[in-house]
């Protein structure tokens, strides 16, 4: 630029510092530091008092660099935690699969609809997402209960004589996750399916591929980024899910989120809870990295 500018560069320097500095400082204080704290406290000893763990920086405490592996040792000695971790992965995996089985045909049907219809159909997918998550999970209690919609319907039809036990089982947890996370699956799938050039399908048909072959050879491989993105968006939060297993699951639907919550509020063993959270985070690192990798590749492909 030439000539004098209206504002002195001092304002711009101040502006640049504000734009970068404010959110940066906020996230450091309220996101990064808390994580380091979780990590640190997972190596502390529990004490009776407030706060219920050995203090971080007080002169009579063991200090910042004291490391106790007791919490982790306990974690791997007690079956409860191992079972919870495995059960979480298991439930999240099956629910993700169910989401894919329902979400893919739905996304495909929306992508194949006439353009003005597509927006309406998408809005109807997202609409329940805006109402309370808690209330949506609650609504399924009315569907699955002993005197719920499904049992009443089956009894009325004469298919069963005794109500089926669905609520407070793993099946109810699968259905709850499927229901709550369906939009996360449908939206990325729709985005990748809608982007597909219809010419590609016609070209494959022209070269001798019957409709199902076209789907296998063209549609499915080209929607793979959407499948991965959608699956990760369901799988990752489902592992740490608390509300769904706690409202719909049975006593044996021990997902790690619920175990951690109970550990924290009932037993007040904060250091052990911090250790449970640290291990959960380590479990999630792999799927998160897979997700980020494919997102970055997808972004590069679009540009």
């Amino acid at each position: 630029m030439t000539g004098p500018t209206a504002l002195p560069p001092r304002v711009d320097r101040w502006w640049r510092r504000t734009v970068i500095g404010m959110p940066y400082a906020w996230l450091l204080l309220f996101f990064l530091v808390p994580f380091l704290l979780v990590f640190k406290i997972s190596f502390s000893d529990p004490i009776v008092g407030q706060p219920p763990f050995t203090p971080l920086l007080s002169p009579q405490g063991p200090g910042l660099f004291h490391i106790s592996w007791d919490n982790y040792r306990f974690l791997f000695d007690d079956d409860l935690y191992l079972v919870s971790y495995l059960k979480s992965v298991h439930i999240a995996f099956i629910s993700t699969l169910l989401c894919l089985l329902l979400g893919y045909p739905l996304a495909y049907a929306i992508a194949r609809a006439q353009p003005p219809w597509r927006n309406v159909l998408l809005l109807l997918i997202i609409l329940p997402f805006w109402t309370s998550f808690l209330l949506r999970v609650y609504a399924w209690m009315g569907v699955l209960g002993d005197h719920g919609l499904i049992n009443n319907l089956l009894l009325w039809l004469g298919v069963i004589r005794q109500p089926l036990k669905i609520l407070y089982t793993d099946l109810a947890v699968y259905l709850g996750i499927l229901y709550s996370y369906l939009p996360y699956m449908v939206l990325p799938l729709y985005a990748s399916l809608e982007r597909l050039d219809p010419d590609l399908h016609e070209a494959a048909a022209d070269l001798g591929a019957a409709p199902l072959t076209v789907f296998r050879d063209i549609t499915l491989p080209l929607s793979l980024p959407g499948i991965i993105a959608g699956s990760m968006l369901v799988f990752i939060p489902a592992i740490g899910e608390f509300v769904i297993p706690s409202l719909l699951g049975g006593l044996d639907s021990l997902m790690i989120g619920r175990t951690l919550y109970d550990e924290f509020f009932s037993n007040r063993d904060w250091p052990l809870s911090a250790a449970v959270a640290t291990v959960l985070l380590l479990i999630l690192v792999l799927p998160i990295m897979v997700f980020q990798h494919f997102q970055a590749r997808d972004q590069a492909g679009v540009q």
Partner: peptide, 14 residues
């Protein structure tokens, strides 16, 4: 992508 349960715990500790 962070599970709420971890965010909640970490903020409380903070």
């Amino acid at each position: 992508v962070m599970p709420e349960i971890i965010t909640g715990l970490s903020l409380l500790l903070l």
